[in-house]
């Protein structure tokens, strides 16, 4: 119960900061929408091509918006050394990680809800299907998990803006590929083939969550 209360405290604080400063969700949402609009006007596609390109556009929007948000979240925590204040508290490092992950997923989730609605309207694809939403959730958990870990690690380095994508993208490739493939299959009505990709996503989510929870304490040590 203590851990749950501490996670709640971290999420509540992040939400309050966002409501005050509006530094994360607004920027992420604008970026995601611009990406979708640009892709929609750049490619005049029909049928299966539209589904394949559309799923790619959707995940580019989600991933880059998420990257933007998680990098900004780490920067906000670094101002005035507030992050060290959190580390000085008797909260277990794993619990801090879960709190930051919950905040990241909340903010990315808000942006995704908006992006999916706009995507459905622009691309005329059945993206609000429960199976597509499941894939989006699984992909977001995997990407958000790695992003939370690496944004904290990158924030301690000098070239933090460059370090986050450099650290995050290679390791999140399995998540991105699985999510894009699964989304494409679902949007082209090949639901029978999607099982292995969802299993893969689930497997990587569990793996990354476990590893990140354990190594987070070492990652934040000086």
């Amino acid at each position: 119960m203590t851990a749950a209360r501490q996670i709640y405290a971290i999420v509540r604080k992040d939400l309050l900061l966002e409501l005050r400063a509006r530094e994360q969700v607004t920027g992420m949402a604008v970026f995601a929408l611009l990406t979708l609009v640009t892709f929609n006007f750049a490619f005049d596609l029909t049928g299966a091509d539209r589904a394949a390109s559309g799923s790619g556009a959707l995940w580019v929007a989600i991933i880059f918006a998420g990257l933007l948000g998680m990098g900004r979240a780490a920067a906000i925590d670094r101002q005035q050394g507030a992050w060290e204040g959190v580390l000085l508290s008797p909260v277990d490092r794993g619990t801090i990680f879960l709190g930051k992950l919950a905040s990241a997923l909340l903010f990315i989730g808000i942006v995704e809800a908006l992006a999916l609605a706009v995507f459905a309207a622009l691309f005329s694809l059945p993206v609000l299907h429960p199976m597509v939403l499941l894939v989006v959730c699984l992909g977001t958990v995997g990407f958000g998990t790695l992003g939370t870990l690496f944004s904290v690690m990158a924030a301690t380095t000098r070239a933090r803006e460059v370090m986050l994508p450099v650290l995050l993208f290679p390791l999140s490739l399995p998540i991105v590929i699985s999510a894009v493939r699964a989304t494409t299959l679902l949007l082209t009505d090949r639901q029978a083939e999607v099982g292995p990709w969802i299993s893969l996503l689930l497997g990587f989510d569990v793996l990354f969550l476990g590893i990140s929870y354990v190594v987070f304490g070492h990652a934040v040590e000086e």
């Binding site: 005035q80 050394g81 507030a82």
Partner: peptide, 14 residues
Amino acid sequence: VGVVGHQTYLYDDL
């Protein structure tokens, strides 16, 4: 342990 450091450990927008 209570710590006062070089930085305030506070959130500016709270």
